[in-house]
Design a protein around this nucleic acid. Structure first.
Lengths: 221, 221
DNA sequence: AATTGTGAAAAGATTCACAGCA
DNA sequence: TGCTGTGAATCTTTTCACAATT
């Protein structure tokens, strides 16, 4: 029993798709749609319908055979499963371009997350107000403001580990890391990394392969 | 034979880890290290050593038993595999906070990528200079500037599909999509999505599960 | 003695295909 | 009839363990 496996066994791959389903369901709900089929939900989420059914059944779902899934009910179900009912504090560390962009990013402020602190070390930035919050230094963070919350690291790679340590110390149990660095954290702390350079490199790989295979005379549509 | 499978069969999961290896190797190289073991490289990349060996062997690697991998040589090998030898043009569409942040993001401008155009529809933004480039409208993009390049979408979700269509029209074959929307593109075009809200939701899920299991009396170190 | 490369085993994820139900 | 839920089949990924090699 490490920190990894999930309570009632929702597979990790399924968890990764739940936000996508929720997004689609939210937009269906806004249009006043009462029910949706796995086929349509799959289409809106960019996956296959069998996948949708498997995923939702692993949640102990409440679809109706011959009809589909109840949109508001399934929304609530997924939001509850994701733990989005309770609002979580977010601390952003590193007030460069990316940090500032995230601080004012609407998608972050909406469902379930609330930016409670902005942090930087640069004295020229500390004390400035960004999007209604005053930038503080790391050591001014109160443990209460970060407990059971999410830390977002948008510092240069060199500072990332130090920041992660401080966040963990301050009670953060989840970290979203934009710095191109591997973080060492206790096993109770979850880290997700978003590496823009890596994403581009992966795209470059596929383009490269495509170029090679067309040069070799494969047909490409 | 769709567009998916890779020339000499480098598994997709492996491709996803190559940028991480390259990052570690680059930093080892900068320190003047001549060789590295799978064990150490694994440690630096946050994976297991067996994984590293499998991954590198699928590249047709050139490690030396009893010694390890030659750092500069392996770097070159991976960079070549990823297609990072040739510089690729990047077009960023959507000059909000995130778009501006990416436009001046160093990690993007370095290895293999070069931002060649910034695009927005807002007349108040078009014509402005950001980071040495003048913001244009979509229709002023020359096909040549985007061909075989990468399009980055940082617009609101509602505009994303339209932008993707235009990028594809303009010759882009890879898209990095930050808008929370599923894009429909021809099968020859590769899309990777970065969804910040989804990342946070996934972290929230794990925190939520952890909270549940501790409440149920599981030990958590 | 140290470390790679790789078959084989195990685990995980996806897809199929159809029984079961409204 | 239409669509879910799921066992079985398939495919992919990870991990193990050890022979091969310097």
């Amino acid at each position: 029993m490490t920190a990894e496996p999930t309570r009632r066994g929702v597979p990790e791959a399924t968890v990764g798709r739940l936000p996508g389903y929720l997004r689609a369901l939210t937009s269906l709900g806004d249009e006043g749609r009462a029910s949706v089929s796995s086929e349509e939900l799959a289409d809106l989420s960019g996956v296959r319908s069998a996948q949708v059914r498997k995923d939702l059944s692993s949640l102990g779902s409440y679809g109706v055979r011959g009809v589909g899934y109840d949109v508001p009910r399934l929304s609530d179900q997924i939001a509850a499963e994701l733990g989005l009912s309770r609002t979580r504090p977010v601390v952003i560390v590193g007030m460069g371009n990316l940090g500032r962009a995230l601080a004012s990013y609407g998608g972050l402020t909406t469902r379930g997350f609330h930016v409670t602190a902005l942090v930087d070390t640069d004295p020229a930035v500390v004390g400035r107000r960004i999007d209604g919050l005053t930038v503080t230094t790391m050591d001014r963070l109160t443990p209460g403001s970060t407990r059971a919350g999410v830390g977002v690291i948008t510092t240069p790679a060199g500072a990332a580990q130090e920041v992660a340590d401080a966040l963990v110390e301050g009670g953060v149990r989840s970290i979203l890391n934009f710095a191109p660095a591997v973080l060492r954290v206790p096993p109770t702390v979850h880290v997700r990394a978003v590496d823009l350079a890596a994403e581009l490199a992966i795209l470059a790989f596929h383009e490269h392969q495509q170029a090679l295979s067309t040069a070799d005379g494969e047909d490409v549509g």
